[in-house]
Simulated assay, not measured.
Amino acid sequence: MGHAFAVGTGGDRRRDRLLRRGGGVSGPAAHAPTPPVVQLLRVHGRDTFGSGGRARGRLYDVSLTFEAGIHAVLGRPRDGTTALCELIAGRARPRAGRVLVAGREPWRSPVLRRRIGAYLDRPTLVEAGRVGDAVAVASELRGIDVSASIAELGLADLLGRRMASLHAYEARALELAFALAVQRPAAVVLDEPLDATELVPAEALFERLAAMARDGAAVILTSSIPSDVEGVADHVHLVDRGRVVASDGALGWPGAGERELTVWLRDATLARRLASELGQAAALLGVAWRGRDGETASVSVRAAALDEAAVAVAAAVARTGIDVIGLQPVAPTLESLHVARRKRTAQEGAR
């Protein structure tokens, strides 16, 4: 069985905020309070996506505020992420409470809805004829010039094809172009936007979102994969079965201030040797090995940054001559976030 070695003096250095890519604001001005662009006030609601009138997810008594910046909401549609996006976009009406964007209720105001970029899990383009014609019709109906957005995302080659020939991810990428084409939006809501990044590079998407946030938009994106939004969002919220259960510093984010690297070795003897050697590295936050004699084993290495863990492993391997099979960064999952949250709650209750 494996044994743990406590190493390093860094302690738990989790950051309350994630750093935004694409040239976000830094310094004291970045922390100045700003009025919320989007407010949810004790909202109960459901999405409209499910078949037969059944919702995929619901929200229960949710109160949240989103100021200008990038916000990530972690969870699955059954937890209410799609419902959240539809309510903010004005595609659904809350059953109780109020949803406000720029001080107004989006479900009541078609004018306001034109100032909200929305990428939802529902196709809106006409599914017949040529792509260029369908885009032109949608642009006219929505009052949006999407040509620059399509060019920026590298989607112009799709315009000459027929709608029926598009793969699902290609149609989704066009929907994303419309969401990003709204001029000076009050809010942008994106439900699992990385679904479209098979065509649209994630880096280009995040740079565009950062620019919109700097111009004053509240950018709200959902994801069921925490690593997709790591290093992107200014604020992170975790939802579970329709309720917000943790935000920012209370999230217990395993990766915001602590990263883990798994090192694979041929047997437990080598794992023990490597773990013992790494136990002397002051830069590491923790080391543990797992495995049995005669079987493939692993060493888990925790550090404040992934490159610190990799450098420590490389130095230990060079000193010992141990043969490493492979290295694998450990990405946080929704399940690991919930486990970390429950542990923190239990620790606070025991004090």
Score class of each variant (00 low, 15 high):
Arg76Gln: 15
Pro123Ile: 10
Gly143Leu: 06
Arg95Tyr: 01
Gly129Ile: 04
Ala138Pro: 00
Gly90Pro: 02
Val146His: 01
Thr124Trp: 05
Gly154Val: 02
Gly160Phe: 04
Ala118Pro: 08
Gln183Arg: 14
Gly129Trp: 08
Glu140Gln: 14
Gln183Asp: 15
Ile150Pro: 06
Phe206Leu: 01
Leu112Cys: 10
Pro185Val: 07
Leu112Glu: 11
Asp121His: 13
Val126Pro: 12
Leu199Arg: 12
Arg172His: 07
Ser149Val: 02
Ala118Glu: 08
Ala186Thr: 07
Ala96Lys: 09
Leu158Thr: 05
Asp145Thr: 04
Glu105Met: 12
Leu166Pro: 03
Ala148Gly: 13
Arg95Gly: 15
Asp145Gln: 11
Thr81Trp: 10
Trp107Cys: 10
Glu127Val: 02
Val137His: 13
Ile144Asp: 05
Thr82Tyr: 01
Pro185Thr: 01
Ala196Val: 09
Ala202Lys: 12
Leu153Gly: 01
Gln183Tyr: 09
Leu125Thr: 01
Arg115Ala: 13
Leu166Lys: 00
Pro201Val: 03
Val182Asn: 08
Leu205Asp: 06
Ala164Val: 13
Val189Ala: 04
Val111Lys: 12
Ala134Cys: 05
Gly132Val: 08
Val137Cys: 04
Pro193Cys: 07
Ile116Thr: 03
Ser149Phe: 04
Ala148Gln: 12
Ala168Gly: 03
Asp157Met: 00
Arg104Pro: 04
Ser165Gln: 14
Leu112Asp: 05
Ala83Tyr: 00
Asp79Asn: 11
